Simulated assay, not measured.
Amino acid sequence: MRALLIVNPNATSTTPAGRDLLAHALESRVELAVAHTGHRGHAAELAQQAAADGMGLIVVHGGDGTVNEVINGFLPKPVLGPANSLSAGWMPRIAVVPGGSANVFARSLGTSSDPVVATNQLIDLLSSDTTRRIGLGYADDRWYTFTAGMGLDARVCEAIDSSRNDGHAVTPARYVRTTVQEFFKSKGSHPTLTVELEGAEPVSGVHYAFVSNSSPWTYLNTLPVHTNPGTSFDTGLGVFAMRSTSMVSTLRLARQLLTPGAEPKLDKLFRVDDVPCARFTSSVPIGLQMDGDYLGLREEVVFHSVPQALEVVAPKPDPKG
């Protein structure tokens, strides 16, 4: 099988030694070509060409942003309707060896966050031809793998992007500090979002919301954060919309999110799993992020779940959850 290894050399945890180890290991299993990204959007260009050339596998060594670029580079637009689907046709498989700061997508698939361990995992999976098909989220003419957000989360991603451009390292501690800063900046502001689900009354007065394609929503080092525990790559989307910014409600919610096995529940929280489609509107332009990438301001976004959209080289899901 022919394969392309796409490496983001600027990703947080990639190293020359790790990249060489991964390439040498893959060469024992596939006919390998290696490409390093050089600019924003380059991973998408490389993936598009790999698919056009008929390569059977694309291995991504980078963070969630690089993975998102690759998928959007070669995966066609879905057919949206009563049953969202992807047009029939051949597509390469995807494998991920983490190289970023969070690596939420890879870790949610059961891939180790350690690049060396993940490399060994991948070789074993290729040897046994172990794959699975997963659903993806689609919104704003883009695919996303694990989460999207409007409001607070998008502002945090925008601030993190800005600090990264200024040369600051992206760490869990920086995410926490930035989230706290952005929360207090917006505290007391008028809620602008309305959430609409088919067959249900609109939910208005929302300050910020997440639309997840898997769980966990993110990680704090090794600690998974679950906004929608019932959401997975095999279900529809999980909607999590907060209608309060009070300190009491926020602290209670934070405790629930950080408690293993907890189901987030608050009077001011609207949360539902396995949603095929969700429409968000805002009375003023509000920030949108997808897979941690800030996309700008929007007044309306429709989120779709597209089942069985992507074949990944990854461990089979644990039937016990």
Results as ranks from 00 to 15, higher is better:
98 P>I: 02
99 G>T: 06
99 G>Y: 07
101 S>T: 07
102 A>D: 02
102 A>L: 02
102 A>P: 01
104 V>C: 06
105 F>C: 09
106 A>F: 05
108 S>H: 05
108 S>E: 09
109 L>C: 06
111 T>I: 12
112 S>K: 04
115 P>C: 04
116 V>W: 05
117 V>H: 07
118 A>R: 02
118 A>G: 03
121 Q>F: 00
122 L>N: 02
123 I>W: 01
125 L>F: 05
128 S>C: 08
128 S>G: 02
129 D>Q: 07
130 T>Y: 05
135 G>W: 00
136 L>N: 03
137 G>L: 02
137 G>C: 01
137 G>M: 01
139 A>T: 00
142 R>K: 06
143 W>R: 03
145 T>S: 13
146 F>P: 05
147 T>Y: 14
148 A>H: 07
150 M>Y: 09
154 A>P: 01
154 A>F: 02
156 V>I: 08
156 V>P: 03
158 E>N: 14
160 I>K: 10
160 I>L: 15
161 D>R: 10
161 D>T: 08
161 D>L: 11
162 S>F: 15
162 S>H: 14
162 S>Y: 15
165 N>Q: 15
165 N>F: 15
166 D>F: 11
166 D>N: 11
167 G>Y: 05
167 G>H: 05
167 G>V: 00
167 G>I: 04
168 H>S: 11
169 A>S: 14
169 A>C: 11
169 A>L: 13
169 A>R: 13
171 T>C: 13
172 P>T: 06
172 P>K: 05
173 A>Q: 13
174 R>N: 13
175 Y>Q: 06
176 V>W: 15
176 V>T: 14
177 R>N: 04
177 R>C: 01
177 R>Y: 04
178 T>W: 13
178 T>G: 11
180 V>Q: 12
181 Q>C: 11
183 F>C: 10
183 F>M: 12
187 K>E: 14
188 G>I: 10
188 G>D: 13
189 S>D: 14
189 S>G: 13
190 H>N: 11
192 T>I: 07
192 T>V: 10
193 L>W: 12
193 L>T: 10
193 L>Y: 12
196 E>N: 13
197 L>G: 12
197 L>T: 10
197 L>S: 10
199 G>Q: 03
199 G>C: 04
200 A>F: 14
202 P>W: 09
203 V>N: 09
204 S>N: 04
207 H>Y: 12
211 V>T: 11
213 N>C: 05
213 N>P: 01
215 S>A: 11
217 W>Q: 15
217 W>H: 15
218 T>Y: 08
218 T>E: 07
219 Y>F: 06
221 N>R: 10
222 T>M: 03
222 T>R: 04
223 L>M: 11
223 L>W: 12
224 P>Y: 05
224 P>M: 03
224 P>I: 04
229 P>S: 02
229 P>F: 00
231 T>M: 03
232 S>W: 01
232 S>C: 00
233 F>I: 00
235 T>C: 05
238 G>E: 03
238 G>D: 03
239 V>M: 04
